[in-house]
């Protein structure tokens, strides 16, 4: 196995009860790179993203087939999804600050992992907030409630919360779709920075965004992976007709 590849997806099928929504997906995700998943809505890109941290387990009658290999183990058959989720973090469409202080938000995942030492918590919270480029804005208000932050700040807080547990991989599900252009620019800048410490998979409906921030781009259509390649080549020289039609704006 090539150790450049942190995740290997092999023959992945996914079903919502009897309805198949992902068909035989094969893909490798490179370490410390950003992979963007694009495609028209309903193409399965978000469903695919949510396989990596087994989010589908929360609901009944969902079924996976195939493998996602991570650290030599198949994610889809691991018994312990809770441990998995502290290694593969997730950031959602709209900001999801918990109803508690800024500090407690970032410390939440750490406390779940059993870290109680005050000094260690303070240290790691500060560290995570710095990595998320939020520290300067919130250092004087760590104990105020997180809902008072702006939308962009909240989204960076959520990123800091995910970073605090030092995940290997971060999943982003359209992370800027609820934000204004200025906040979006800041998040994008941050995502480029974050590659140094983690691997990123991002679902986006915005092709310009994919082009700006990703190293690899994968195009999904009707539950199938149509084409995947290095981002610059993908957008300039797509191999597939459907991809070409999509990125040139002819459908979707």
């Amino acid at each position: 196995m090539n150790d450049k590849h942190i995740l290997k997806v092999e023959h992945l099928n996914f079903y919502y009860s009897s309805k198949q929504v992902l068909f035989d997906i094969n893909m490798n995700i490179e370490k410390n790179m950003t992979t963007a998943l694009i495609g028209p809505s309903g193409c399965g890109k978000t469903t695919f993203l949510r396989c990596f941290n087994r989010m589908h387990d929360l609901y009944k009658n969902n079924r996976y087939e195939g493998k996602i290999i991570y650290n030599g183990e198949n994610i889809l058959t691991m018994r312990d999804s809770i441990n998995l989720r502290s290694k593969i973090g997730m950031v959602f469409q709209s900001p999801t600050p918990f109803p508690m202080s800024v500090f407690d938000n970032v410390a939440y995942g750490l406390r779940l992992n059993g870290i109680k030492n005050k000094a260690e918590l303070t240290d790691r919270v500060e560290n995570a907030l710095m990595k998320a480029a939020l520290w300067d804005e919130v250092k004087d208000r760590l104990n105020t409630t997180a809902s008072g932050l702006s939308g962009g700040q909240q989204q960076r807080l959520v990123i800091a919360r995910a970073l605090a547990v030092e995940p290997d991989i971060l999943l982003f599900d359209e992370p800027t779709s609820a934000l204004d252009p200025i906040a979006t620019a800041k998040i994008e800048e941050l995502m480029v920075e974050l590659k140094k410490i983690t691997t990123i998979i991002v679902v986006t409906h915005n092709m310009q965004q994919a082009a700006r921030i990703s190293d690899f781009t994968a195009f999904f259509y009707l539950g199938k992976l149509v084409e995947m390649g290095k981002t610059d080549e993908f957008f300039t020289r797509p191999k597939n007709r459907q991809t070409e039609n999509y990125i040139s704006g002819r459908f979707g």
């Binding site: 999801t96 918990f98 508690m100 939440y108 779940l112």
Partner: peptide, 26 residues
């Protein structure tokens, strides 16, 4: 919002903690 629960699950929180610490508080 359901997403708030998912955000907690995504950090590895078990459901009972999500209920008592996140949902009740909200």
């Amino acid at each position: 919002p359901w997403q708030l629960r998912e955000a907690a699950f995504a950090l590895g929180a078990p459901y009972y903690k999500v209920i008592f610490q996140i949902v009740y508080k909200s």
